[in-house]
Amino acid sequence: MFTKKYFEEFEVGQTRSTLGRTITETDIVMHAGQTGDFFPHHMDAEWCKTQAFKQRIAHGTLIFSVAVGMTASVINEVAMTYGYERLRFIRPVFIGDTIRVQITISDKQPHKKPAFGLVTEKVEVLNQNDELVMVCEHLLLTEKSADE
């Protein structure tokens, strides 16, 4: 879906949520192959039985990537990703866990280019038990309306 949502139309406190997505063993194996991260925490079920979590954990970068993809349901033709900040992996995600994402507009600031503003989205990833597993800030460089 394409839309045009200008800087002035974002309001601090606005929220949106995604549907859930279950993390599978295939997700972990494919991510390991794409990134080269074959650490035993993700790939070796027997070794993991000897560790604190007793099972394989999903890569943090996998959860970040999936979460970002889950939030990308609308293409805003007047905004683009400016970056991500304050990324934290709060608790592990295991094979079979279902994650969902809650996004809250947390800040708006002018940009050094007068035709743009920066919108900050707080991105919270929750598991099936509503436990926070990951959090970060997504920065959007957003055009200002020509009417302003």
Rank of each mutant, 00 (worst) to 15 (best):
residue 3 T to N: 07
residue 4 K to Q: 05
residue 4 K to T: 07
residue 11 E to M: 13
residue 13 G to D: 10
residue 14 Q to G: 14
residue 14 Q to L: 10
residue 15 T to V: 12
residue 15 T to L: 13
residue 15 T to P: 10
residue 15 T to D: 14
residue 15 T to Y: 14
residue 17 S to D: 04
residue 19 L to A: 03
residue 20 G to M: 04
residue 21 R to Y: 14
residue 22 T to H: 12
residue 22 T to M: 13
residue 22 T to S: 15
residue 23 I to K: 12
residue 26 T to C: 08
residue 30 M to I: 13
residue 30 M to G: 11
residue 31 H to A: 11
residue 31 H to L: 15
residue 33 G to C: 09
residue 33 G to A: 13
residue 33 G to H: 10
residue 37 D to T: 06
residue 38 F to N: 13
residue 38 F to L: 15
residue 39 F to N: 14
residue 42 H to V: 08
residue 43 M to E: 10
residue 44 D to C: 13
residue 45 A to E: 15
residue 45 A to C: 07
residue 45 A to P: 06
residue 46 E to Q: 09
residue 46 E to C: 04
residue 47 W to Q: 04
residue 48 C to T: 04
residue 49 K to C: 03
residue 52 A to V: 07
residue 52 A to E: 08
residue 54 K to Y: 04
residue 55 Q to A: 07
residue 56 R to G: 02
residue 57 I to E: 00
residue 57 I to G: 01
residue 60 G to Y: 00
residue 60 G to N: 00
residue 61 T to V: 06
residue 65 S to D: 12
residue 67 A to D: 03
residue 67 A to L: 02
residue 68 V to M: 12
residue 69 G to K: 14
residue 69 G to R: 09
residue 70 M to H: 02
residue 71 T to H: 01
residue 72 A to K: 15
residue 73 S to N: 13
residue 76 N to G: 11
residue 76 N to E: 09
residue 79 A to K: 09
residue 81 T to N: 15
residue 81 T to W: 03
residue 82 Y to P: 01
residue 83 G to H: 00
residue 84 Y to G: 02
residue 85 E to H: 10
residue 85 E to V: 08
residue 86 R to M: 15
residue 86 R to D: 14
residue 87 L to I: 15
residue 89 F to V: 03
residue 90 I to W: 05
residue 90 I to T: 11
residue 90 I to V: 15
residue 91 R to T: 09
residue 91 R to Q: 08
residue 92 P to G: 06
residue 93 V to G: 06
residue 94 F to L: 07
residue 94 F to V: 12
residue 95 I to F: 08
residue 98 T to A: 08
residue 98 T to C: 07
residue 99 I to D: 01
residue 102 Q to S: 07
residue 105 I to W: 08
residue 105 I to P: 05
residue 106 S to F: 06
residue 107 D to W: 12
residue 107 D to Y: 11
residue 108 K to F: 10
residue 109 Q to A: 14
residue 109 Q to C: 13
residue 110 P to E: 08
residue 110 P to S: 05
residue 111 H to A: 15
residue 113 K to S: 12
residue 114 P to E: 03
residue 114 P to I: 02
residue 115 A to K: 07
residue 116 F to W: 05
residue 119 V to C: 02
residue 119 V to E: 00
residue 120 T to I: 11
residue 120 T to S: 08
residue 121 E to W: 03
residue 123 V to L: 01
residue 124 E to L: 01
residue 125 V to R: 00
residue 126 L to S: 00
residue 127 N to C: 04
residue 129 N to Y: 11
residue 133 V to K: 00
residue 134 M to N: 05
residue 134 M to G: 01
residue 135 V to S: 04
residue 137 E to V: 01
residue 138 H to D: 04
residue 140 L to F: 12
residue 140 L to E: 06
residue 141 L to F: 09
residue 143 E to I: 00
residue 143 E to Q: 10
residue 144 K to C: 01
residue 145 S to N: 05
residue 145 S to A: 05
residue 146 A to C: 03
residue 146 A to N: 07
